[in-house]
Each structure stands twice: as structure tokens, then as C-alpha cells.
Design a protein around this nucleic acid. Structure first.
Length: 596
RNA sequence: GGGGGCGUGGUGUAGUUGGUUAACAUGUCGGCCUGUCAAGCCGGAGAUCGCGGGUUCGAGUCCCGUCGCUCCCGCCA
């Protein structure tokens, strides 16, 4: 090693020791005959004093040194003079008096500050990611990520799980997200796909008899990005045999509770409730307008259809008559919102599909609302009571089809929560959402599609909705599927799988996949199920999202060493980039004329 | 594919209803300086205001297009 100690470890106990340090020059303070260097390595910062009176050579070398130079220093640890300790620094009691200073490598002036936590344009950070990663924020986040992954591995190994790698080059399947595909050189015109998740492979590992499998798995989806979505991301992929839903839920709940509590000293994040509450999908949609509700605050959505449906206000009565809903939320203390603020909220609601937004402010005198004149005293009183409006509160009401009402009020709830700062940033509100529908209707393709994926089991009592016959009604079938949600982020999802060939065939039939197509695309799965597949199920929590939440970051790029931009490019390497004609030829690929 | 936001010395920002030489902080370079720790003091350099076009006597400012970054909708089994 080029160093005997790390910069961060030196304390008063080391006083008198000869040490050799190596690291980056964090800051330099030149007093003429005396130069102070703050030397930084991964473990911390220590002050090096280069005194011309002590070593002319070290002092002369320090005069040439600049920020981010890589240097090696030999010297003696000594106590700082009386009253000159720096309480801001863990090493602040001491300093290293340099006897020798060697520049291992000079550095150009960095394009942005490394020694200050000043905001920098993200494009610049990504272009010079290796410099960005030197900064304390990214060092902290990536080290936290390592601790989290390490905790997860320990937890699962203690419970007899086996970590098994699965291939990155696999077969493309039409279901789900758009695949990243890789051309085959050996087989002209054929392609591999990168896994959207190791879903089928982990199920086959259950057929193989491993019973408890996990993997910290990279997954790839060629879809547009979001703050919580990257084209490649990492999942804790996990599968167990001979389990039912609650076995998976209890395993993961134990993992997350233990993880959060272990990490609390450095994250400052604490659980809002344990054990985790459970909501059915229906409840979540009805009460929070979302299948990933932020439960750090209340502001539940209240059903007013029975109160306002019969009213003389045409919008309400017409909506109720058409099978729609009238629902509202209470925005505490917003009764004094100006016309302008109300207009903003109305525009917000309309952008999300509402035809309009009805508001109702309770004042000390009574009620102020554009629709007050259409409502009877009784209807008004019952609305106020149902919404629990206190004087000074604002009620926001939407009338529409249930999906629109949920969408709009769910978003409005989050928006009001933000405005009123109702969510505690240091609180983690985990919640299970269970009993998802097995299918959702795809409007554009006019067919049923799997809400989770086509290997998800229906609830035992719901298989009848898939059987051709009088009970056939796929929309009614609920799945043995579950999501773990935290602070409004979907942190993971899973299900109990189908393990019988007849049930899998039924599933494909409802999805409109013919037996021939099923054979071509999933033949290996169907065949495997004929060789003694155990009942099994699993879950796949997203590591990036989990780490981001624990790190207090609002974007998963902050917990990924080398992320892509929102346009799925890598500003550091320039990927994606053109390739040579020779490479294309080898792969039997011909570009369209306007795209080459 | 659609909508919103941002783009001004290396970095972070200011720049009024269009009006003289584009301002501030910090960094950077040079000088002075032996107890600083965001060191201090003095001096210097550094911007075709993302790019292209238009309106105008005059554009950082207004309009159109375009590029980049970002957030959201669609999409994400």
C-alpha cells in the first residue's frame, strides 16, 4: 500500500506516529511560509501542514499543488495548537506535519466544485460522472447502497436462500414492456432479448427444486424514462416454493423492517407503522385514488355519490345516473384560497382528465361555493359533515366515471399534500396492496391483458371467471398478486404463480394467445410444468427505488453510479453510438436509408 | 408520440416595460503573507447570453424553429 493510514481514521491517539497518507487535495490554504492542505480519501479529510521551517522540500512541493491533485504525504501526527482544533472535522484534533510530499498525479481544474455541495447542472455531472462520484453525496449514496444490498444478501442467506445467476441473453417474448434486443451473428435474422426480469428463469429454478432462490438482478426495459425509471435497473429477484401469499409478505416485511431499523442511524428514516398495513387494490383506489398510495398523510377520498347524486346540480345528477361517482377530499385550512389558486387546481384537475372541479369553502358564517345555490341545506350540511370540513377548510369535489375520479382526486390529494407539506420526509410509510385484478382491458387492442404477468395465479375461488361458460368474466377475477409500496413509490411487486399446465393454458386462452402461439413462445414453461412443478411464488423489490427512498433522494439516478439521461443516453461515453459497417455486416443488419 | 420547466464567463446566479461598456459570488492565474480550516489582502484574465432564423433604428430580453438537460401524460406484463 502507498499509505499506512487513511485520512479519515487519524485521531488524538495517533499523535507522535509517523504516517504516510495518499489521496486528493481537497483544499489548499497558502499562508506563504506555511501551507495547509486538506487531504481527502474515501474515509475522510485530514489537515496536512507544510511548514518551510520543518521541510523546505515538502513546502516547495505544496506550492505547486492544486485542487484534486493526487499526492502522497509523509509526516508526523501532532496535536493542533491550543484552541485551534476544528470541531467540524472528525480528525480536527490533530494534523499531519509533512516531511515529504510527492505529487503522484496532477489534475486539471475540475469543471465543477468537488469540495462544495453546490447544485450543478445535471448534464455536466453526468458527462464527468467520475468527478461527480467523488462528491460526498454520491459517495454516501453508493456506500449506503452497498450496505443495503449486503444486508439483503445476509438476511436471505440466513434463511437458506441460494443466489443464482441467470442469463442476460434470453428469448424475447411479446408480453410486457418493449425488449432490448441483441442481434445474433451466428444466426442471421435472429435476436436475443435482454431480460425485463428473470421471471421465467426463476420459476424454472423452482421446477428445478431449489425452493428458495434470489438474485440481485439487472433488468432491462426499453420504455420511456421517469424519475423512478431507468432503462436498466436492479431488482432483488426472489422466488420460493411451497408457499402462499402471506409467506412471501412476511419474509419481505421482516427484511424491510430489519433493514430500515439497521440503517436508521445513517439515513434518519423511521417506519411510520409496523407491521405494514394491507390494503386491497379496490380499497387503495377508492380511498387514495392510486394503487401506490402515499400513506404518510391522510386526506382520504370520500364518497359523496349518495348525498349529491340526487341533487338539483345537473353535473352531479347526470354523473350519478350514468353510473359515475361523486367524490371529494378535504384540504385543511385552504378555505381562503384565492380565485387564482382555485383556478390553478381546476386546471390541474382538467389536465388529468376531469371535466371540472367543484369547490366548497366552509367559513365561520357558512359555506361559499359556486354550486351552493343548487344544493339544499340538507345536502350542503351532509356534504360538510361527510368531508369533515371545519371552518377555514376547502372541499374539492370531482364527478365522473370511477377511473377518472380516482385518477384526478388521487393526484389532487398528492398535490395538496405537497402544498401543505403533510408528508414527513423522514417517515417511511410502507403498505401492502393486495388482491389486484388478474386482468385489465386493453382499449386499443380490444383484449384482456395480464395486469401483473401471464404466470400469475388467480385466487382459488376466481378460476371460474376464466372458464368458458356462464361464469366467464375475466374482469372479476382477482390475482394472488401484491405490491409493496412506500411513500407513494411502488417498491416491489410479486405473485403466487400458476404451476399447473391446465391453468396456464386457461390463462393464455383468456389473453387471446392460441395454443400454437403459447407453444412457440412459452413452450419451455408449459413443458416444465408437466415435470412436477411445485406451487411457488415470489416478489421483486426494486433496489434503486428502495435505496433512493432510504437515501432521501427523489431520483434513482442519484443512487446509480452511471445512469442514463431521460433520453436514455450516456453523456459520459456517448452511448448509444453508431457502429461500423463491418459490425453491421457481421450481424446481417441493414439500416433503413434515412437512419444510417 | 404529447405537454410543462430550464439553458447568460469554469461553476452558481442577477439582468426591470427591448436601449450605452452584460452585473455579482465563487473558481482560476499572478503577487503578498507562519495558524488557516469557505483563510485574508492586492491585481489580472475569462461571455459570439445553447444553436439557427425572424421582428426592430436597436434583442440576453419579443416571435418561430432546432439542440441539450429535466419533470409529467401516454408507455412501463
Amino acid at each position: 500500500m502507498l499509505k499506512t493510514h487513511t485520512c479519515g481514521e487519524l485521531r488524538a491517539q495517533h499523535i507522535g506516529q509517523e504516517v504516510t497518507l495518499a489521496g486528493w487535495v481537497h483544499r489548499r490554504r497558502d499562508h506563504g511560509g506555511l501551507i495547509f492542505l486538506d487531504l481527502r480519501d474515501r474515509w475522510g479529510i485530514v489537515q496536512v501542514v507544510c511548514d518551510a521551517a520543518l521541510s523546505v522540500a515538502a513546502h516547495r512541493a505544496a506550492e505547486e499543488v492544486r485542487g484534486e491533485y493526487v499526492i502522497r504525504v509523509q509526516g508526523t501526527v501532532r496535536a493542533r495548537p491550543e484552541g485551534l482544533a476544528n470541531p467540524e472535522l472528525p480528525t480536527g484534533e490533530i494534523e499531519v506535519a509533512a516531511t515529504e510530499l510527492e505529487v503522484l498525479n496532477p489534475a486539471r481544474t475540475p469543471p465543477f466544485y468537488i469540495n462544495e455541495d453546490q447544485p450543478v447542472d445535471e448534464a455536466l455531472r453526468l458527462r464527468y460522472r467520475y468527478l461527480d462520484l467523488r462528491r460526498p453525496r454520491m459517495q454516501r449514496n453508493l456506500i449506503l447502497r452497498d450496505k443495503i444490498v449486503s444486508y439483503i444478501r445476509d438476511y436471505l442467506h440466513e434463511r437458506d436462500f441460494v443466489e443464482i445467476e441467470t442469463p442476460i441473453l434470453i428469448k424475447s417474448t411479446p408480453e410486457g414492456a418493449r425488449d432490448y434486443i441483441v442481434p445474433s451473428r451466428v444466426h442471421p435474422g435472429r435476436f436475443y432479448a435482454l431480460p425485463q426480469s428473470p421471471q421465467q428463469l426463476k420459476q424454472l429454478l423452482m421446477v428445478a427444486g431449489f425452493e428458495r432462490y434470489f438474485q440481485i438482478a439487472r433488468c432491462f426495459r426499453d420504455e420511456d424514462l421517469r424519475a423512478d425509471r431507468q432503462p436498466e435497473f436492479t431488482q432483488l429477484d426472489l422466488e420460493m416454493s411451497f408457499v402462499d401469499r402471506d409467506d412471501i409478505l412476511e419474509l419481505i416485511e421482516g427484511l424491510f423492517i430489519g433493514l430500515v431499523e439497521r440503517m436508521e442511524p445513517e439515513t434518519g428514516k423511521r417506519l411510520k407503522t409496523k407491521p405494514f398495513p394491507r390494503l386491497t387494490y379496490e380499497e387503495a383506489m377508492a380511498r387514495y385514488g392510486s394503487d401506490k398510495p402515499d400513506l404518510r398523510f391522510g386526506m382520504e377520498i370520500i364518497d359523496l355519490t349518495d348525498v349529491l347524486g340526487p341533487s338539483d346540480f345537473r353535473v352531479f345528477s347526470a354523473t350519478a345516473a350514468a353510473g359515475g361517482q361523486i367524490k371529494g377530499i378535504r384540504a385543511p385550512g385552504c378555505g381562503s384560497y384565492s380565485r387564482r389558486q382555485i383556478d390553478e387546481l381546476t386546471a390541474f384537475a382538467q389536465q388529468r382528465g376531469a371535466k371540472g372541479l367543484v369547490w366548497l369553502a366552509r367559513t365561520s358564517e357558512g359555506v361559499r361555493s359556486p354550486i351552493a345555490k343548487f344544493l339544499s341545506t340538507d345536502e350542503l350540511d351532509r356534504t360538510i359533515e361527510r368531508l369533515a370540513l371545519e371552518p377555514g377548510d376547502l372541499g374539492l369535489i370531482v364527478a365522473d366515471q370511477p377511473s377518472v375520479v380516482a385518477q384526478v382526486l388521487g393526484q389532487l390529494r398528492l398535490e395538496m399534500g405537497r402544498r401543505l407539506k403533510l408528508a414527513d420526509p423522514d417517515e417511511l410509510a410502507f403498505v401492502w396492496v393486495v388482491d389486484f385484478p388478474l386482468y385489465e382491458w386493453d382499449e386499443t387492442e380490444e383484449r384482456w391483458s395480464a395486469m401483473h404477468h401471464p404466470f400469475t395465479s388467480a385466487r382459488d375461488e376466481d378460476w371460474k371467471y376464466l372458464q368458458p361458460g356462464p361464469d366467464y368474466d375475466p374482469g372479476k377475477a382477482k390475482a394472488k398478486a401484491y405490491d409493496i409500496v412506500c411513500n407513494g413509490w411502488e417498491v416491489g411487486g410479486g405473485s403466487i404463480r400458476i404451476h399447473r399446465r391446465d391453468q396456464q393454458a386457461l390463462m393464455f386462452q383468456v389473453l387471446g394467445i392460441t395454443p400454437e402461439e403459447a407453444q412457440a413462445q412459452f413452450g419451455h414453461m408449459l413443458e416444465a410444468f408437466e415435470y412436477g412443478a411445485p406451487p411457488h411464488g415470489g416478489i421483486a423489490p426494486g433496489i434503486d427505488r428502495l435505496v433512493a427512498i432510504l437515501a432521501g433522494e427523489h431520483n434513482i439516478r442519484e443512487v446509480i453510479a452511471f445512469p442514463k439521461t431521460a433520453q436514455a443516453t450516456d453523456l459520459m461515453t456517448g452511448a448509444p453510438s453508431p457502429v461500423s459497417q463491418r459490425q453491421l455486416d457481421e450481424l446481417h443488419i441493414c439500416l433503413k436509408p434515412d437512419e444510417s
